[in-house]
């Protein structure tokens, strides 16, 4: 495949036209991309291209992690051993001793890729550490499948507001950050944010206040990387209530943004 792509690019260059030049460059980079991809997949290096000489003995390398999966915030011990290597590096960590251990605390699932170089050539090894971000099981990405409501609600929780305010409180910002993580991990899900107000105050003003509340959450999600086109906001003002008692506990229940899957 790599060769094919390169050949195409050569042909383009030969024609000498500028538009084809562009195509050529595209094809070339595409070829390189594909080459890199292939390279990663095969742990054995292409011998002729990478070995500087045939004299040395090819290095060996292993890397392990304990444990292999952690919860977010926990740490994992990486342990690697190489032979016949003069320099060893791990992606994301940099140069490391030829044998060693290191404690790391990745924030997301990571492939720790080790490259060992020696006189006899280069070899690599990798280990994958899975990080369980709280409540982030990926929804099976079928066509338009947005997953179950219960999973959604366990990760995307309603946020609550102070009296006559549409500013996200600290607790709301935490909820929004968690919601954004889940939504970024599940790009199929479309979200409806409903803005609500307690039943004090005037009906028309409360509809606009609810609109501002829903928009505050939307802006928080967009700032955290959720595409705005996935989010729909609707203000219900005080026309729909979660709780109808006249006390602060109840009013607080009603001053909220409700998140739901926008099916």
């Amino acid at each position: 495949m790599t060769m094919d792509a390169n050949r195409v690019s050569v042909k383009g260059q030969a024609s000498g036209q500028s538009r084809l030049w562009k195509n050529a460059a595209l094809a070339l980079s595409l070829g390189m991309l594909m080459a890199t991809g292939c390279h990663k997949k095969n742990s054995a290096p292409p011998p002729s291209a990478l070995a500087p000489s045939d004299s040395g003995i090819a290095p060996t390398a292993t890397i392990s992690a304990d444990p292999l999966s952690i919860d977010l915030g926990q740490s994992v011990v990486l342990n690697w051993r190489t032979t016949n290597a003069s320099s060893v590096s791990i992606d994301g960590i940099g140069s490391v001793p030829v044998n060693g251990t290191q404690t790391v605390s990745p924030s997301a699932s990571t492939n720790f890729h080790l490259v060992a170089k020696g006189d006899g050539g280069t070899t690599d090894a990798s280990v994958r550490v899975t990080v369980r971000v709280p409540s982030m099981p990926s929804v099976p990405s079928g066509e338009g499948d947005m997953g179950s409501d219960s999973i959604f609600h366990s990760h995307v929780q309603d946020v609550f507001f102070d009296y006559d305010s549409f500013t996200l409180r600290a607790d709301a910002q935490t909820s929004i950050a968690q919601a954004a993580q889940y939504l970024n991990a599940n790009p199929n899900i479309k979200i409806l944010i409903g803005g609500y107000c307690d039943d004090r105050g005037s009906a028309e003003f409360n509809i606009t206040l609810g609109e501002n509340r829903a928009n505050s959450a939307k802006q928080g999600l967009v700032a955290a990387g959720v595409n705005a086109s996935r989010i729909r906001v609707v203000s219900y003002g005080k026309e729909r209530q979660f709780c109808t008692d006249e006390n602060e506990a109840c009013w607080q229940q009603n001053r909220r943004d409700q998140f739901s899957i926008d099916r």
Binding site: G201, S202, F205, L209, N212
Partner: peptide, 27 residues
Amino acid sequence: VGPDVSPTWNPKTGAQIAWISGRSGLP
């Protein structure tokens, strides 16, 4: 920024509008 709602025209002149704004907090 903030709620702007409930306009009413000056019915005599048609040249002015009163309304409610939450731009400074309470409406």
